[in-house]
Design a protein around this nucleic acid. Structure first.
Length: 267
DNA sequence: AGACGATGCGGAC
DNA sequence: TCCGCCTCGTCTT
């Protein structure tokens, strides 16, 4: 499930259920022993940065969670079921209990760790506001790289929060061939990518899932929610969808709707 | 029962 | 560029 929209949604849901209350914290699996240091403390705030989730407990206690590919949070009403053997972290608030299973990271961060995390994460399309300077810097980075745009969209140091589904869908919706060298993108292309990423990921936060197809504003069934990702036939031209590997991940795209660029234009 | 894949990432080479 | 890790639902035997 987890691309940036999932993490931002979690930050909001955890905030609603737990912030401002003392929380019972435990690690049933035992692989997050620092849970003891949180037990009984009040959760002050939650924060999502790209695909990273931060839980601020005050007094320098910050929990960093990264779900990776399989990590999940489950929300239980009272009475919560017994935790699974794999439950890394259980957080019990006044009337909801949250269980974290299978994360790549669940750890306490020092303030230095937190600074370096913030420093290595690129612009986040879901963030409330992003400075012009950060966007200019990001565009300048693209102009310098030799990599393809398909690979760049997955690089969390450049854009944070975009994952394998969103990258395929963004490129399709903008008609951009994933193999286009990122340095050949115009500022207009870059701005279009940024706007589309913001639109789609923010919609994902609201919908609690990835939706990129909109039929007259209607909410499509799950199978019909995407344009190219894992599809065989293009929704637009009915031609076959191609599959390639980019940045080590499968990437689906439509060679008709996303034709190769002839001459690069910069602006 | 066992295999397989999945919306991710970091480290080794 | 590949490998290993994290977990579990679904599919195959």
């Amino acid at each position: 499930m987890p691309e940036g929209h999932t993490i931002h949604r979690l930050a909001l849901d955890l905030e609603r259920d737990l912030v401002g209350h003392p929380v019972e914290a435990s690690s049933p699996q035992g692989r997050f022993p620092d849970a003891d240091r949180l037990d009984g403390r009040t959760l002050r705030s939650t924060e999502a940065i790209g695909k990273h989730l931060l839980l601020h407990f005050g007094a320098g206690r910050v929990v960093h969670v990264h779900l990776g590919l399989f990590g999940r949070f489950r929300r239980h009403r009272r009475p919560a079921p017994p935790p699974r053997d794999t439950t890394r972290l259980r957080l019990a608030g006044p009337d909801r209990t949250w269980d974290l299973v299978g994360p790549t990271a669940c750890e306490m961060l020092t303030s230095a760790d937190l600074r370096s995390l913030r420093a290595r994460i690129g612009v986040d399309p879901i963030a409330r506001r992003t400075s012009r300077a950060d966007l200019d810097r990001t565009f300048a980075t693209l102009a310098r790289t030799r990599r393809e745009v398909g690979a760049v969209l997955l690089d969390q140091a450049i854009f944070s929060g975009i994952g394998n589904v969103y990258r395929a869908e963004i490129l399709f919706l903008l008609g951009i061939d994933p193999a286009t060298p990122a340095r050949d993108l115009s500022r207009r292309d870059f701005d279009a990518i940024w706007r589309k990423a913001r639109e789609l990921l923010r919609l994902g936060v609201v919908e609690r899932r990835i939706v990129t197809v909109r039929d007259a504003g209607r909410r499509p069934p799950r199978r019909e929610a995407l344009h190219v990702y894992k599809r065989e036939v293009c929704r637009a031209c009915t031609g076959p969808i191609s599959r390639t590997t980019s940045a080590g991940r499968s990437l689906w795209w439509c060679p008709t709707c996303q034709p190769p660029r002839r001459e690069p234009t910069r602006s």
